[in-house]
């Protein structure tokens, strides 16, 4: 009887061993979190990949928010929307009675006290994180929901895929420039952004370095011409007319080395720069190989830059 009791106590202690290290400190949990609310797409991607979908997610379509990225849409089922990422509805979160809220260290900085009053908050740098940062977060989130083994397996599988993709990369290819183009801005993603660091891992150097500690920053047409990339990758949305369409009519555009070499690629910005989880990475790797970008082949077909709106 006593032994049974001791065993129970011990197992209780063991259960209390869940420790999640995050940007605000360490969260101790007695049992894996079952009800989680996430406020960034990468956390949503990660939890779905781990097979423990969150109860609520900031997947609203307000302001700069465009909702769930297309590659993930079919897998987001039965997850309650708690509004936009920047201003999620606190009462919608509270009503879901979450055990843990996963927030972005940078985006939700001012909101963390309010969130903590609802449930314990775990914060990671998703929006400004590099590929390595995001991978570490997969492990911590795996620990949080009691799926550490699965998280490790996800990362191992991903590592194998990365090796395979790396074989496609042309080591002699010149550095490339990555940028998100919206109707009114052109934002360069440097070598320390998620997508920049992922491509560096695959052996493609990025032309842009962080400026003023910012891994992403806007540049004009003149700035682009000054950088004169040999390979340009623009991330756009099919429902928008990005600023690069009008730039393409400028006499400066054809003088870009990337234009002359036929190395201007175009991908979906929601899929490539917003998901940032294990599922997004898998999707990106497939398109990377498919498009010939890694091998430095001329951009063509669906991945070639469209000079005018189709």
């Amino acid at each position: 009887m006593n032994r049974l009791l001791a065993l129970l106590v011990l197992s209780g202690l063991a259960a209390a061993q869940i420790q999640v290290r995050h940007d605000l400190g360490t969260l101790n949990l007695g049992a894996p979190a079952k009800r989680v609310v996430v406020l960034e797409y990468s956390f949503l991607d990660t939890l779905i990949a781990l097979g423990v979908p969150p109860v609520g997610a900031a997947v609203g379509t307000q302001g700069g928010d465009r909702g769930v990225p297309p590659y993930l849409r079919s897998r987001v089922v039965g997850i309650t929307s708690v509004g936009s990422r920047a201003v999620p509805s606190l009462e919608a979160i509270l009503a879901l009675q979450p055990q843990v809220i996963i927030a972005d260290t940078f985006v939700h900085k001012d909101l963390i006290p309010q969130l903590q009053r609802i449930a314990p908050v775990v914060a990671f740098s998703s929006r400004r994180g590099s590929f390595d940062d995001l991978n570490k977060q997969v492990l911590e989130i795996g620990r949080l929901v009691g799926r550490e083994a699965q998280a490790q397996k996800l990362l191992q599988d991903q590592e194998r895929l990365l090796l395979k993709a790396r074989a496609f990369a042309n080591p002699k290819a010149p550095p490339l420039l990555l940028a998100v183009a919206t109707p009114d801005s052109f934002t360069v993603h440097s070598n320390e952004s998620f997508i920049g660091s992922l491509l560096e891992r695959l052996g493609r150097k990025s032309l842009a370095k962080p400026q003023n500690n910012q891994t992403q920053y806007p540049v004009g047409l003149e700035g682009l011409v000054a950088l004169n990339p040999a390979t340009l990758v623009v991330f756009t949305a099919p429902d928008e007319t990005p600023i690069v369409r009008s730039w393409a009519r400028n006499p400066l555009w054809p003088r870009l080395e990337a234009a002359q070499r036929g190395r201007i690629y175009e991908f979906d910005r929601d899929n490539w720069t917003r998901g940032r989880g294990p599922l997004a990475t898998r999707f990106i790797l497939a398109e990377l190989i498919d498009s010939g970008l890694l091998a430095d082949k001329p951009a063509s077909g669906a991945y070639g830059f469209k000079t005018s709106t189709p």
């Binding site: 201003v87 606190l90 001012d110 909101l111 006290p113 309010q114 003023n212 910012q214 992403q216």
Partner: peptide, 24 residues
């Protein structure tokens, strides 16, 4: 124009909003 984008983000409260108001 020259500031970090975190600054612009923190300034959204200037728009005027009661969002997030608490007892404190």
């Amino acid at each position: 124009v020259r500031a970090d984008d975190g600054v612009a983000q923190a300034l959204t409260f200037l728009v005027g909003t009661v969002y997030g108001a608490d007892w404190e």
